[in-house]
């Protein structure tokens, strides 16, 4: 259970988030929609402990994540998978190395890493491309590598910030289906997106944000913007 409790975030005089409260239940699939500047990215930054809220708190399973000591933040981040619009892969490393990289950071032995990476690549359907470099892949495939990397720690919670923003409709659908599959396997998913077709066709909970506030929160929502 993730609870956002009266979160407010100021950047100077600008209010990026204004008294935002909602909660996400385990295994839920939540879509965050809203125009640029609505506060989606700020919300995700707070969730990743990259920034601290000006007021309010975010608690995960009863623990306020912003009360974590600095040195525990890396360990906290390993429990959360993140996927970005710009993928953030290392161009000089192969698919396999990119995914393994995340596990090396945590000090896992090579044998365990190899086993785990193979499993994850199979899950995202990139087993055959393990030794390819990102530049040799399509946009959708690259994003699947990023998802694979986000999943290596078997997180309970996956955050996807505009993961389909750089993809064509077919690839966007591939990624969305993959996220749904991951969700069905038991991972909570928070998806921030601009993609109307996807929001309208998957029938999941939609939270609409505008000017740093939540304006709608519906169990089976639609994309309401033009």
């Amino acid at each position: 259970m993730i609870i956002f409790d009266k979160i407010t975030k100021h950047y100077g005089s600008h209010k990026a988030l204004d008294n935002v409260s909602f909660s996400i239940r385990p295994r839920e699939f939540v879509i965050l929609v809203g125009p640029s500047g609505a506060g989606k990215t700020t919300l995700i930054k707070l969730l990743l402990c990259e920034e601290k809220p000006t007021f309010g708190s975010i608690t995960i399973d009863g623990k306020d994540i912003h009360l974590l000591q600095e040195k525990y933040i890396p360990y906290y981040r390993r429990q959360i998978g993140v996927v970005f619009q710009d993928f953030k892969l290392l161009p000089s490393q192969t698919v396999e190395e990119n995914v393994a990289f995340a596990m090396q950071v945590s000090g896992k032995p090579d044998s365990e890493i190899n086993k785990e990476v193979a499993k994850i690549l199979e899950l995202v359907g990139l087993k055959d491309k393990a030794h390819n470099f990102p530049r040799e892949l399509s946009g959708g495939e690259i994003q699947r590598v990023a998802i694979a990397r986000a999943l290596v720690f078997r997180p309970q919670f996956l955050i996807a910030d505009e993961p389909t923003g750089n993809l064509d409709p077919a690839n966007a659908w591939e990624i969305t289906k993959l996220l749904l599959k991951i969700n069905s396997l038991g991972t909570t998913v928070l998806l921030a997106t601009h993609n109307r077709d996807i929001v309208n066709s998957i029938n999941k909970r939609v939270i609409n944000m505008e000017d740093g506030r939540i304006v709608k929160d519906r169990r089976k929502g639609k994309y309401d913007y033009k």
Partner: peptide, 11 residues
């Protein structure tokens, strides 16, 4: 990226 995937400061 290292920071994002949870590498510690000292790592």
């Amino acid at each position: 990226i290292m920071k994002l995937v949870g590498a510690t400061d000292w790592y």
